[in-house]
Structures are given as structure tokens and as C-alpha cells.
């Protein structure tokens, strides 16, 4: 499913006449099926508001732009948001804070039961087992446990299992690695990559971590003051260092070093992923001589 957003405008406090703060200002963007799409920007730049539109948690107001996702027209009054949310999964910041059920099984099954009430018990069990195993937990060990007895990292995995259990085609994640330690972060990103190769066709990832964006995203957009400033490959969006710094953002490590090297006449021209960057540098410093 393709995501097509046109002139999306949204302001908080519609009711107040003094023109509430504009959270989104004529945002237009197309995200193709299959992309691993990154969104960066300072806190308050509108990126969270934007992604919440993608599964109808914030509705498009009249004459304030349009969103089409696959065949869903989110501006249409008759749009079936439940069907949409089944296809567009959403992982919030600190998703473990949404756990509520008595057992891990019940919590993960929650979404499934909401979206597919007709599903048989057996099928539900299969799907839940699959989701829990996918996020790297031992199904037989955790299924009857209370989610609240688990460790912080395990809770987050359960919460993510609760989102992917419906096999969404588009997965939207808002700062999913916040608060994770390095190992937890690495595991999580590996899981995300794995999902992207399975049923998740498109990933939309909001992150403050520029290294994550340059490493994993095919394309990304920079948000600032409710507008999209730049869209493109990591190479494109990290080309203008001064602009990024003026927005309170920074360069990923690879781009930072490339920039410094270019002043000394070295242009490794990597795609900014770590492995490619190392390869290109080796060509530059060792390869030529060998």
C-alpha cells in the first residue's frame, strides 16, 4: 500500500479564534510500498502529529488536505478506520506503558480479537505464539505470566508483539528505541529489519537517532515547524550540515566524518551505512596501494 499525503494541515485548539499553533502546515509526501522511511525533526516539529494521522488517530479535518493509504481515503467520511488500523500498525514511544491484561497472551491477543472477532481460538493461539516468538520471547514461558512481572525490555517486546500480531502491512513507529540500552536497541533494530522482510511491507520510523536513520532508512524526511524541509536518501538529507544544526539536529557519525574528510580532499562517497563507509575508506586508504 502506498501512502499519499497532500497539503495536510492541522492545528491544535481549533476552537480558539486566535489561530492555535499550527502543528502541520501543508505537508505533502508520498511513501511507496516497500520503503523503510525515516522521519527526523526536533521535538515539537510536528512529526508525531503527522504519523498519528497515518492510521486515523488524528482525523483529517475538512478542507485541510488529504491522505490516501492504498485504497483507503482517510478524508472520506465512510472510511473504515478499523480496517485501516488493522493494516497500519502503530508503535508508540514507550509502548510498554499500554500493557493492561492479566497475562501476556491476553495482552498480545487484544488487537487480534478487536480486529478479527470471527477468528477461531486455535488460530488466535497460533498467531499470538508466532508474534511472541518473533519478538524473541519464549512463548511457553511467558504466555501465562502477568506482563507486569517481566523486565523492562521484555515488556516492550510484549507490547510490540501486541501490535504486529495483526500482521500490519505498514508499521509506523514513533521513537521506538527511546530508553533502550545499546544491546536492546540493537536487538530491536534487527527485529524491525526482520519484520520488514516478512509481512511488514513499509516501515515509517520516527527517530532522534541520526545513526539509526542513516543505517536503516531508504529515504527520510526532515520536519521543522510543521513543514517538511527535505525528503530524500540519507545522503541527500544529511548533505546540508549547517541547516541540520540550525534545526537542533546533528549528522550521523559517518556523514560527520565524511564531511570533515572532504575538507582535506577525501571523498569516500559512501551511502552512509557503516559497512559501506568502512569499505570506501579502506579503498581510499589501503585498497589503492594493494
Amino acid at each position: 500500500m502506498r501512502i499519499e499525503v497532500k497539503d495536510l494541515t492541522y492545528s491544535y485548539e481549533q476552537s480558539s479564534k486566535k489561530g492555535g499553533q499550527v502543528a502541520l502546515d501543508k505537508v505533502s509526501i508520498t511513501i511507496e510500498e516497500g520503503e523503510f522511511f525515516g522521519i527526523i525533526g526536533q521535538t515539537g516539529s510536528g512529526k508525531s502529529t503527522f504519523v498519528q494521522h497515518l492510521n486515523g488517530l488524528i482525523k483529517v479535518e475538512k478542507d485541510r488536505g488529504s491522505i490516501k493509504i492504498g485504497e483507503f481515503d482517510l478524508t472520506d467520511k465512510k472510511c473504515d478506520f478499523k480496517a485501516l488500523r488493522k493494516k497500519v500498525g502503530m508503535v508508540f514511544q514507550y509502548p510498554e506503558h499500554q500493557l493492561f491484561a492479566e497475562t501476556v497472551f491476553e495482552d498480545v491477543a487484544f488487537g487480534l480479537k478487536n480486529f478479527a472477532p470471527e477468528m477461531s481460538e486455535r488460530e488466535i493461539e497460533e498467531r499470538v505464539e508466532q508474534a511472541i516468538t518473533l519478538v524473541g520471547l519464549d512463548y511457553s514461558k511467558v504466555k501465562e505470566k502477568s506482563p507486569f512481572e517481566l523486565s523492562g525490555g521484555q515488556k516492550r517486546r510484549v507490547a510490540i508483539a501486541g501490535v504486529i500480531v495483526t500482521k500490519p502491512e505498514i508499521l509506523v513507529l514513533d521513537e521506538p528505541v527511546a530508553g533502550l540500552d545499546p544491546a536492546g536497541k540493537k536487538d530491536f533494530l534487527a527485529l524491525l529489519k526482520k519484520l520488514h522482510k516478512m509481512f511488514v511491507k513499509t516501515v515509517v520510523l520516527v527517530s532522534h537517532d541520526m545513526n539509526v536513520i542513516s543505517e536503516h532508512c531508504s529515504r527520510a524526511a526532515i520536519f521543522s515547524a510543521g513543514k517538511i524541509l527535505t525528503v530524500g536518501t540519507p545522503k541527500d538529507i544529511f548533505a546540508n550540515e549547517d541547516e541540520l544544526i540550525s534545526l537542533g539536529l546533528s549528522l550521523p557519525t559517518t556523514a560527520f566524518i565524511e564531511k570533515r574528510l572532504s575538507h582535506s580532499g577525501i571523498n569516500p562517497k559512501s551511502n552512509l551505512t557503516v559497512s559501506d563507509f568502512i569499505d570506501k575508506l579502506c579503498e581510499e586508504f589501503v585498497g589503492g596501494k594493494r
Binding site: 488517530l57 488500523r85 500498525g89 509502548p95 487484544f110
Partner: peptide, 16 residues
Amino acid sequence: DETDRIIKAQKARGAD
């Protein structure tokens, strides 16, 4: 704020 966030998270999981 927190209530708003949780409501949205559960809505995203199909809660009605």
C-alpha cells in the same frame, strides 16, 4: 496527556 496517549495506543490496536 498520558490518558490521551493510552487511548490512542489502544485505538491503534482496534479498541472501540
